[in-house]
Design a protein around this nucleic acid. Structure first.
Lengths: 179, 179
DNA sequence: CACCTTTGATCAAACGTTTGAATAAAACTG
DNA sequence: CAGTTTTATTCAAACGTTTGATCAAAGGTG
């Protein structure tokens, strides 16, 4: 356990959560400290994780995190309409369109008018794209293992279960979804 | 439990995780499916959560998620050097500098040369900034409660504990940190 | 079949982030 | 105390994202 730093100067990215919860509940009694803490921890861990994966695995290869996600998705699903890529990768269609400009310029993805619907654009990996994603995903997963390795297997299973529960509920309850 | 959709066309943002894990482990046996699943779930839940909070609470007020984070931090800690704001909010100093341009223009934050060190910049909330953050944080936390409410209190406690464990370990093991 | 609405994509403008370079003040070092 | 190094910030360029507008193809209706 970390010390409950009362002094703002002793805080860091992590102990800030404790400080924030204590101070906020003191001033605003209607705040649910558990909800606050959960959201703070979740977003902070996720952003540290993404930052680490991006900077240790993807940027050295000249890729961004969103670029990796789109390449990975296309590798898994095969050639796909831009619309499906947006849905499965959780991006807006405009974001996919802009991102594919870069990926196409770098020779990793091709853009093609779809046959079944002349409005739609079909995206596919180039050979260079396939080579790139397969060689990089191994490194990506090794880094994932470094992170998850601090939890026991049963703990990992529990964590996955709780996150799935949040994800499923969000899907049902959520008003604000993309598009 | 969701159906194991084998057909790519039936997938959505959520069931994509199952599909991705099955397909990847089939092709790359060295991949740890548990690590893969955990990271996918964590990043997907976090990004859905942030997207929802931003679009339902903050954008309607004319704020961005990073802008909210900085304002909230300054509200909690009082006037602070830009450096500390960067450290506690998990942003780079350049990002803070750029973001404060907007917040200052909108009259929410003031910038001042620090007395103790004439290189440093001290940031503080304006009165409008204080009003804004206090009225908005209540709505923010209500939305947090909607999300976390799908878990029981004991489940919330377990989830927080596991996330803290990840965060702490990350802090020790992590090579790639900001700055 | 002409008309209207919906759908798929892109563009434009504003914003936030990143890395690396530049500027300036402070802290060391000999 | 002059010279070097470190520290705090900002700037510049490239990238990714968002919302809202535009354009083109498809679908639906009378």
């Amino acid at each position: 356990m970390t010390e409950p730093a009362e002094n703002v100067d002793d805080l860091d990215f992590l102990s800030f959560v404790d400080f924030a919860v204590r101070k906020t509940t003191r001033v605003m009694p209607e705040v649910d400290p558990q909800a606050m803490r959960l959201v703070l921890e979740l977003t902070r861990v996720a952003s540290a994780l993404v930052y680490d994966l991006e900077s240790s695995v993807h940027r050295p290869q000249g890729w961004s995190w969103p670029g990796f996600r789109v390449l990975f998705m296309l590798w898994l699903s095969g050639p796909s309409d831009a619309k499906r890529v947006a849905k499965l990768s959780g991006m807006s269609r405009a974001a996919v369109s802009a991102l594919v400009n870069t990926l196409e310029r770098d020779g990793l993805v091709t853009r093609r008018r779809a046959e079944h619907d002349r409005r739609a654009v079909e995206l596919a990996l180039t050979e260079a794209g396939v080579d790139a994603i397969t060689s990089t995903y191994a490194a990506h997963n090794r880094r994932e293992q470094t992170w998850t390795g601090v939890l026991s297997k049963p703990e990992q299973t529990i964590l996955i279960g709780l996150l799935e529960k949040l994800a499923t509920a969000a899907d049902e309850l959520e008003i604000h979804t993309r598009d």
